[in-house]
């Protein structure tokens, strides 16, 4: 299976809090997942994701609030559209679209965070390293 490199983004109000809840509940998940905190998933510029793949990431994970629950009203809606378009672009570049994952996780969904992270890391492991560099 080997090592895979994952870059994760999490919005402070929902996903990052959900990840913290998974922590206080001592739920175990794949250590490959490392999160970069942003205030809102809307802060994530598509160029960060492309930069990540370019620099050696095998998978990029974005954790956002459920649609309708964004702390800043509609930031996550912008993220949904951006990810949809970006996936098409990634396909053109020959990057499997499953390597970019957008998930909605609320502050009370610690168990779900664990499940989603484990599933994503499994998926990336089965796809293998990207070897973009």
């Amino acid at each position: 299976m080997g090592r895979v490199k994952i870059v994760g983004f999490a919005c402070n109000w929902c996903c990052y809090a959900g990840a913290d809840l998974a922590g206080t509940s001592h739920l175990k998940y794949a250590p490959e997942m490392r999160l970069i905190r942003v205030l809102c998933s809307g802060r994530i510029d598509p160029k960060f994701i492309l930069e990540a793949f370019k620099s050696g990431a095998d998978g990029v994970f974005i954790g956002a609030c459920h649609p309708g629950d964004c702390h800043y009203q509609s930031g996550n809606l912008k993220t949904i559209k951006r990810v949809m378009l970006l996936k098409k672009y990634l396909k053109q570049l020959g990057i499997e679209e499953e390597r970019l994952c957008l998930e909605f996780i609320s502050a009370s969904e610690g168990e779900r965070f664990q499940k989603v992270v484990n599933q994503f890391v499994e998926k990336i492991k089965s796809l293998g390293p990207l070897n973009w560099k």
Binding site: C40, G75, K78
Partner: peptide, 10 residues
């Protein structure tokens, strides 16, 4: 401005 960050990324 509440600091969400949608504008700089766009």
């Amino acid at each position: 401005c509440r600091g969400c960050g949608v504008c700089p990324s766009a």
